[in-house]
Design a protein around this nucleic acid. Structure first.
Lengths: 210, 210
DNA sequence: TGCAACCGACCGGCTGGACGGTTTATACTT
DNA sequence: AAGTATAAACCGTCCAGCCGGTCGGTTGCA
């Protein structure tokens, strides 16, 4: 048995926890179950995570950082110019990179479940999403376009993660096609001459949804 | 004390359960806590729901039916013609009908949490979303457009429900504006002449995300 | 009288966590 | 090289609290 670096054990425990959640749901994510999945005893597990809450927190943190990596990678791989982040998302998140996506799905799914259990741990996740929102707003596109595209991608993603609709490759391609056309047209004069029905005079409330 | 119709008690219990989940998270949704919130004893609660699972199932079912009502109402209120369902969504789901939205948020949030506990209860929710997906695909718009708009709206909705980003009225308006322009342009020749980067030759895999 | 609504005490199983002990690997000493 | 010290990693048992669910009883409307 080769000595692993300390982080590796923690990672393998987190993997185990995700497996348990994915297989049987959050209510089955007991310390014992996680320990068994990680091939160790509960005592050993508690040596690495001082409490169940700490384990859950680590789960969320890792998932947030995975997500952050995902969209920054997408950004870096996209050509420079307006809409770089959005193009990165479209290519990176709707691509066929099966394995990485599987991993992200695992972690996202477990993370959402964990957050349901303890909503106060949402901060790292919110930070990641808020950062993406800002990146996309400052992407050199007309207002709302980047946000709309990012939202659609996230919607698709969450549908998939939660199993709310069957997300097949056809749906992905149709959506991707529509979003790409939107992206392209948003950079032509046609976009600004478009005349969506007048937003009826907004009454002065500035209430926020949340 | 006026005699309430039997459904009313069940509804008030469901309301109580949602309140508990919203206030303290799923892990605090014990029968005792729900009963207390509903001003009755645990025994009384169990008289109306034979088990906790039955309570959760009712929570999910009600939330799914609320959601279904939301988008069918939107449809009915929209003018006939292509994109009716999508326009209904845009108007209905991104509108200022604060109260109804608050209610929907409550039920959605609690429902998602409950689903984390027992994923096998997802069916009614999936049915509602799948139906919407179909309605939107058969809405007389170019392929993908309706789906993309519905997804963006849902993404926004889920962001808000889960508290993943701060969804303020400005963001809503920007997104709504972009989606409405997309909707309009999708019905002009400019849409079909748009030439999104060729989807690279699809390899023959037809794997689905889920 | 009957029946539905409701109460609250109780039970048993589960689970998080504490804890004392054991193994294993590295560091230090001679 | 051999012995020894030290600490980290890990184990398995135990306990106490919690929580879902049961059940016998009570109330109050029809």
């Amino acid at each position: 048995m080769v000595r692993l670096d300390p982080g590796a054990v923690r990672r393998s425990i987190l993997d185990a926890a995700e497996s348990v959640v994915l297989r049987s749901g959050l209510s089955c994510m007991t310390l014992e179950a996680v320990a068994a999945e990680a091939n160790m005893s509960k005592g050993g597990l508690l040596h690495h995570f001082r409490s169940k809450d700490e384990l859950i927190e680590a789960l969320v943190t890792r998932s947030a950082s995975d997500w952050r990596n995902c969209y920054t990678e997408g950004y870096e791989q996209a050509d420079a110019g307006p809409g770089r982040q959005v193009r990165g998302l479209l290519h990176h998140c709707l691509s066929d990179a099966k394995d990485r996506k599987k991993e992200l799905q695992r972690s996202s799914c477990a993370c959402f479940s964990a957050l349901a259990q303890n909503p106060s741990l949402i901060d790292p996740m919110r930070d990641a999403y808020t950062e993406l929102q800002q990146r996309v707003e400052n992407d050199g596109l007309p207002p709302g376009v980047g946000a709309a595209i990012a939202l659609a991608i996230d919607g698709l993603w969450i549908y998939w993660v939660l199993g709310l609709v069957k997300v097949d490759q056809d749906l992905i391609e149709r959506v991707r096609g529509a979003l790409e056309k939107m992206l392209e047209l948003s950079q032509t004069p046609a976009w600004n001459s478009a005349n969506p029905q007048q937003p009826e005079a907004r009454e002065g409330n500035s209430h926020e949804m949340s």
